[in-house]
């Protein structure tokens, strides 16, 4: 059973998650048909910057985050930004979009100059997230849990981060049982995606350098 306090926490996280989205004028540009390779590069960079800003605003609303050591806050955000961005993008791809939008978006990414060996695992990840059919609360909590991962590089006070992450894991576990009574392994599957995300994060630096060379 989810307690009253846990419900309040869940609502807070979900509201913050929904409130902080990439501005529409930025996302609209993604669907414009004509673009040169350089415009594409600039646009994807603008998108990434916007995603990080949105992510920071969301994170500020996670109860207790701003009470952490300031440098630890930066270490957590720096360590998780790429993973949180992959999660958010995965959700964009698993949502039902108007006709043709998914194709335009996918084409843009494929033409970004990122090599195929990185594109394939990325789209495989998007697909595996889509297959989970997460509810919004699960998406928001999973993002918060990703950000509050204590063992990121340069984090000094692991215990303080753990204390913030644990209640989120607890609510998510209960929510999974309630939302997916037929799938006892659902929570474990969600945590498995976090491992996949770590792998993607690991290859991201390589992906960036291959992109730059291209």
């Amino acid at each position: 059973e989810i307690t009253k306090e846990q419900r309040a926490l869940m609502k807070l996280i979900l509201d913050a998650y929904n409130r902080h989205q990439i501005p529409q004028d930025v996302t609209k540009k993604l669907l414009q048909d004509q673009y040169s390779a350089e415009e594409n590069f600039l646009l994807l960079t603008e998108m990434a910057t916007s995603q990080v800003q949105v992510l920071v605003e969301f994170t500020k609303n996670i109860p207790g985050f701003l009470s952490l050591d300031h440098e630890d806050q930066i270490a957590l955000l720096k360590g998780s930004a790429v993973e949180a961005m992959f999660l958010r993008s995965a959700q964009v791809f698993s949502r039902k979009m108007p006709n043709g939008h998914t194709e335009v978006l996918e084409e843009r990414i494929r033409k970004s100059g990122i090599s195929e060996e990185f594109i394939t695992p990325m789209f495989n990840f998007y697909k595996s997230i889509g297959e989970l059919h997460m509810v919004q609360e699960e998406q928001a909590l999973l993002t918060a849990i990703t950000i509050l991962t204590p063992d990121r590089p340069y984090v000094k006070d692991h215990l303080a981060v753990e204390r913030l992450q644990e209640p989120m894991l607890d609510v998510l576990r209960k929510l999974c049982v309630l939302q997916h009574p037929q799938e006892p392994q659902y929570f474990a599957r969600l945590l498995g995606r976090l491992t996949e995300l770590r792998t993607l994060n690991h290859y991201h630096a390589e992906m960036l350098s291959s992109w730059r060379m291209n």
Partner: peptide, 21 residues
Amino acid sequence: PASNLGLEDIIRKALMGNLEE
């Protein structure tokens, strides 16, 4: 790594500022 410098910059600025205002 150099590739992360931009990221840290954006994070620091966003943590200081307030987009909601």
